[in-house]
Structures are given as C-alpha cells and as structure tokens.
C-alpha cells in the first residue's frame, strides 16, 4: 500500500500517465461515433494516436521560436491543472491553472502575427471568457453542497451532488460544448475540416507543436469529464454512465447544430448558463442559509 501522504502524488502520477491514453481513446471513439452518425465507417479507434505519432515525425516548422515555449507551457500547465484535480486539490486553483494554460495557447497564436491565428486567438479568448464564469460557479456549487473546494472531499462526499445542482450541471454541459470545441461553439478552431478561418488558433503550429496541442487536448478531455464525475461521485457506475451519456449528447449536438457567431456564444454561455447556475445556487443558498 502507498503511505498516506503520497496518495495524492500517486493519483497525480496516474493521471499524467493514463490521461493521454484515455483522452486519445475518447477522441478516437468521438471520431468513430461522429462518422457513424454521418453514415460513414470512420477511422480506426486508435487514429488519434497515429495522428499524433505522425505529427512528431514531421519537421518542426515555426513562425517564431517563441511558439515552442508557449506550446510547451500550454501542455505543462494543462497537465498541472489536471494533476491537481485528480490529486484532490482545490477546485479554484485547478480552474486558475486551467485558464493559465489556455492563455499560453492564445499567446502562442498571437506570437506568430498571422491573420488566421490572430482571429483564432481572439475567438479563443472570447471562448475563455464565455466559459470561465460557469466553471467557477460549478466549483462554488460543489462547495455549497459539500462545504469544501477540495476535490478529494467532494469525491468522498456521499451526497448525490447532482440532485442539488441540476441547473449547474446543465450550465456546465453548455460550456463543455465550448471546451470540447464542438459545434455550435467551435469558433476558434475545430476538429473538423469545416473551419472558416483555416484552422484558427492552431493555424501556424506545425508538426510536433501541433502534436503537443493535441496531447494537451487529451489531458483536457479527461479533466473536463472528471468534473462530470464529481456530480455523480457517490456512485461510480452512475458517474460512468453519466459521462458516457453526456459525451454522446455533445457529439450529437456537434453533428446537428451549425456554428454560431461569437455574440450568440457569449450570450448563451453567460445568460443561459449563468441564469441556470445562479438560480440553482440561489435556491440552494436560500435553503442552506436563510431557512435553517
């Protein structure tokens, strides 16, 4: 057995090692399911791994050498954020590390001073401001139910959190669409070929740098789906089922709804998610604080 103080470190290590495999697999399933929805056979399940493997075989062409630094920082802080989350750290700290890592991606795109990257970077920023409030409200909601920001405590809680936070959960699913770069909110870059600004933020990354961005996405997937787990933490089976259903739902939305403009994205993320979240929290607050 692992001695008590090393348990978080152990979980962090497990995340660092397993998350890319899991994330890549999720991406593979995503592509397969998407293809089936479109009546195609789709690529092999392990295709994302082949893609990244290929990218690392290519030449590292950069517009400016600083891009390497920003991309590396993006990956590193994404891993830090996820590792903090899975080692049971403070949700808010996780969110801030998460934002930090995305800022690095945006800066990498800005650094190239290229029109497509630039537009992608601006849109990516808009996406960040669209989802960030909702993610913070999610953390706050978890706190109101479990009295702790620490993931370890939230995980250990026997309360079915989802019953207290249905509004927050729906809000989270909406911003999850932004985070997973799914249509209708895939403004800054898209996994599909139908992006109107070439490839948005990732336009001027090539070869290994693009591969690193892809790996960071995998880490991100696992982290984001981990948050869904928290809502159902009291029962692992339901949690896995919920993640599967939620993810399927995201793919369905991706394939059925067309991309929106940034105004609508910002508004829907802030207004719908914000109201749902806030009403939910307000009711909870009233029940907890005012009615003793």
């Amino acid at each position: 057995m692992i001695p008590e103080p090393f348990v978080p470190v152990f979980y962090a290590l497990v995340y660092i090692l397993v998350a890319p495999l899991l994330g890549g697999l999720i991406a593979g399933i995503d592509r397969k399911v998407t293809a089936r929805m479109q009546g195609r056979v789709g690529p092999p399940l392990l295709q994302p791994f082949y893609d990244v493997g290929k990218l690392f075989e290519k030449e590292n062409a950069v517009v400016t050498a600083t891009q390497n630094f920003y991309v590396l920082s993006y990956v590193v802080f994404m891993v830090v954020a996820g590792a903090l989350f899975f080692s049971g750290g403070d949700m808010l700290l996780v969110i801030f590390a998460f934002t930090l890592s995305h800022i690095f991606l945006v800066l990498g795109a800005y650094a190239s001073y290229s029109p497509y990257s630039h537009v992608g970077a601006e849109r990516e920023l808009l996406q960040i401001i669209a989802y960030e409030p909702m993610i913070i409200l999610t953390a706050v909601g978890m706190y109101m139910v479990t009295k702790s920001f620490f993931v370890s405590t939230i995980m250990a809680s026997a309360v079915p959190i989802i019953l207290f936070l249905p509004g927050i959960f729906i809000g989270y699913l909406i911003v999850l669409t932004i985070k997973l770069r799914k249509s209708p909110f895939d403004l800054s870059t898209s996994h599909h070929a139908h992006q109107e600004i070439v490839k948005g933020v990732t336009t001027d990354f090539a070869g290994p740098n693009l591969g690193k961005i892809e790996i960071a996405h995998w880490y991100e997937y696992v982290f984001l789906l981990g948050v869904i787990w928290l809502f159902f933490a009291w029962n692992p089976f339901i949690a896995v089922a919920a993640i599967l259903v939620a993810y399927f739902f995201e793919i369905l939305i991706d394939n059925t709804i067309s991309r929106v403009k940034w105004q609508l994205m910002l508004r829907s993320a802030w207004v719908i998610a914000g109201t749902l979240g806030l009403v939910n929290l307000g009711v909870l607050y009233y029940l907890r604080m005012v009615v003793p």
């Binding site: 592509r31 690529p43 893609d51 001027d204």
Partner: peptide, 14 residues
C-alpha cells in the same frame, strides 16, 4: 469515406 484510412482534409498547408 477516406477517413477510414486516417486521411483528413485539413485545408491548412502547415
């Protein structure tokens, strides 16, 4: 369905 072979039309030379 060329994606069967992992082929993706990227639209970006880089």
């Amino acid at each position: 369905d060329v994606e069967r072979f992992g082929i993706i039309n990227t639209g970006n030379p880089k």
